[in-house]
Design a protein around this nucleic acid. Structure first.
Lengths: 202, 202
DNA sequence: GCTATACTTAGACACTTGTACAACCTTTAC
DNA sequence: GTAAAGGTTGTACAAGTGTCTAAGTATAGC
């Protein structure tokens, strides 16, 4: 990313960032990502190429910014005061909402970009990494039988497997059913039964 | 892939395929994948660009062929007569061997290509898909509490999380220790306790 | 309202990409 | 040993990529 997202954006920058990310999402619902090129993006939203390169390194960078924008609602972290399995379910629910609220976008994208392609993968990877960060922060203090990172990796992977199953492989599943699947996959209490942790019953 | 891998290869084709894949692996241990271009690959192994494009669509295609070559030993499937958890451990062990036998290659690649980058990702994805295929074939007949695909997805994900942990995040772990981690992550008997399956005890 | 700062723009440049094709060399299998 | 099939090669081409610069315009904040 050429543009520094941390500094406060001017009105112009706001407008430009929005235009490019919206354009990318529109185009993704029209054709495969590999067939989209920078010229096309610029024509679509009537910005010169130079402007594109003021903000982004390349189209991969832009698409990554799109994921950043989409995942904004998911990123909010009150966290901390919840226990591991509550946190996992909370994050799952947020993703569930995200996909439910953007179902047209998702189905558009899936129509032209195959499920296991690098585009869809880059999105699920983005979300998995988000989950990973959040869980690591929360689980970090606890003691498990095996390294925390492994648990955290598996939790984030499992959540995204479920989300993919429901919304990308399109197997409609209610939230309750999904919670049940989650519980089974994460071994109900078994994985989360810490050896003899600090806060066994609170 | 331009070249048809199913038909039997002539000596010349054999030589060329080998030259390109070896070159790619050498270059990956020298610099990041994104900085490698087709011209460079061709200069390195003294083939003209035209020859490269006789075989591969682009450098991504070549790198994928490299994974295909590397994973050849893993792909052999006697399978079928083993039960789910045996199959999972067997596949894990094969991956363990693969990484152990190619440790110099792996560390070379890691030196220039970051762990979460698309290059390393493409390799672990390749192996995860392999695992997925194998497990699906073996678990397909069994009845679980939840959809088989979810179980299979999680098993393959978990195995690759462990492999990444040991060989890419470089946390040396004995095979036995790893087996223990695997058992814990996959919930010991819990996930594999099929509701009331066809072959409960054989 | 003015100014410093931030953003936009056109055009040029060097380089990479992927395709095509015709001529040539190697290999296979009879 | 020879013919047909399979590979290799040089060259050319159109299109895309990413960088740079210098001049222009918009905006924030005083």
């Amino acid at each position: 990313m050429k543009y520094d997202l941390t500094k406060k954006r001017t009105r112009g920058a706001q407008r430009t960032l929005r235009a490019f990310s919206q354009t990318m999402l529109r185009l993704l619902a029209k054709k495969p990502f590999e067939e989209i090129n920078v010229n096309e993006i610029c024509e679509f939203c009537d910005f010169p190429r130079a402007t594109f390169y003021n903000y982004f390194d390349d189209k991969y960078d832009l698409v990554n910014y799109c994921w950043y924008v989409l995942a904004e609602k998911v990123r909010i972290d009150e966290a901390k005061e919840l226990n591991p399995s509550e946190i996992v379910i909370t994050y799952f629910d947020r993703l569930y909402d995200l996909f439910e609220n953007n179902s047209e976008l998702v189905s558009g994208i899936l129509h032209h970009n195959q499920l296991s392609g690098s585009l869809v993968n880059s999105f699920t990877n983005y979300l998995r990494n988000l989950a990973h960060q959040i869980f690591l922060e929360v689980f970090g203090d606890l003691k498990f039988d095996i390294p925390v990172e492994l648990i955290v990796d598996q939790c984030s992977a499992t959540i995204l497997i479920l989300i993919e199953w429901i919304f990308l492989k399109e197997k409609p599943t209610t939230r309750e059913q999904a919670h049940h699947y989650l519980a089974v996959l994460l071994g109900d209490e078994s994985t989360f039964s810490m050896s003899d942790s600090s806060q066994s019953k609170s």
